[in-house]
Design a protein around this nucleic acid. Structure first.
Lengths: 195, 195
DNA sequence: TATGACATGTAATCTGTTACATGATTAG
DNA sequence: CTAATCATGTAACAGATTACATGTCATA
């Protein structure tokens, strides 16, 4: 019975859309540029296929989150440069500022890390710090629950099932350590930098 | 130009299909049972929605990887119990025995962990060990490449971008440590258990 | 002039999500 | 009787993958 009832016009943006917008915030780019970023950097987890990127760009443009302009002059063929609109920047900011939920943790933390990666450029160090704290706040009880589930269920698991679960717990512990390290690092930087 | 040319009839199975088959290997279950497992255990990353599970089960049945039989007798309503066919068991085994590729590492390790979790039940400790070694072999050069990419690119990243990358490196290190720990644990168990 | 990198797209298909529909059985 | 739980399904839609199609420009 979850009536999503999203604010009209904001037909929820998939992860790829935010990845694209985050990159465009850094620098206006063509679809081809973005594809190259996906295929050549550690963002390989996003598909660099034209069938994914061009339709996604068009959807974002239809929602007025980005605007494309055809580049004239420079030697090559028509090349459409996309840049964020004010509405797009606002959407990015809202996305980054969303509190981290249990759901974010359950379904792989890929999207939260994406949010964090863009956070400093889009929302400043304060925004990064807020996201990290929200991350930490969600992570702690989640880790506790994971450990409890492990204790409760390990008797019924196969050897490798138990090990796989342990891996999940360890990875989550590792993540929490990183979050705490990142919080101190960012706190220091903010004190040293802009105070 | 990648002509996939999969062996006919084996129309590549998505991750959800293997998750379902892995659970069925443990014990024949109805769609409802499987949904409950997804919604109540740490396999929450799979959707427990009927719109995902029932069609997936039907697809597997059409490929003769599982077979459903209606349960009579016991009080409740008709309930279809699914169990693996020999072909399904073979497909599971093949999936588990697949060498771990770079691609597996790039796009989140969720699927390899699923493979590993089921490996002992389906392929025995030897199968688990082989998978772990393959995992280790893929992980080491990947980690090296990640670190190199980090060194090469960190100058151009924002503070939080750099941190996010560092998180990726740390998580990968954590994973490698776990793999090595799991290898020694499994090796011991095999020596103690069946020798 | 032929090849390969640049640059953009489309169509078919598959899978998953959301939301709804149906009906049986059990507990209060 | 009514509500909750058990149990299965479907229809509309969104998004990604794959494979193909198209055309420009540089260079060898």
């Amino acid at each position: 019975m979850k009536h999503t009832d999203a604010p009209p016009g904001s037909a929820q943006i998939p992860s790829l859309g935010y990845a694209l917008m985050g990159l465009l915030h850094g620098k206006p780019s063509s679809g081809y540029d973005l594809r190259k970023i996906f295929s050549s950097t550690s963002m390989r987890s996003y598909s660099d296929s034209p069938g994914a990127i061009y339709p996604a760009l068009r959807r974002l443009e239809q929602q007025s989150l980005i605007r494309g302009t055809i580049e004239e002059g420079s030697g090559l063929r028509r090349r459409q440069l996309f840049r964020l609109t004010p509405k797009g920047i606002a959407a990015l900011r809202t996305w980054i500022a969303r509190p981290v939920t249990r759901e974010d943790l359950v379904s792989g933390q890929a999207e939260i890390m994406l949010r964090f990666a863009f956070s400093e450029q889009v929302a400043g160090i304060t925004g990064s710090l807020e996201l990290l704290r929200s991350f930490e706040a969600a992570l702690k009880p989640y880790l506790t629950a994971l450990r409890e589930e492990f204790q409760a269920g390990k008797a019924a698991m196969s050897g490798s099932g138990r090990m796989a679960f342990e891996c999940g717990v360890r990875q989550t512990e590792c993540l929490l350590q990183w979050v705490q390290y990142a919080i101190t690092a960012h706190t220091k930087e903010r004190e040293g930098g802009s105070l």
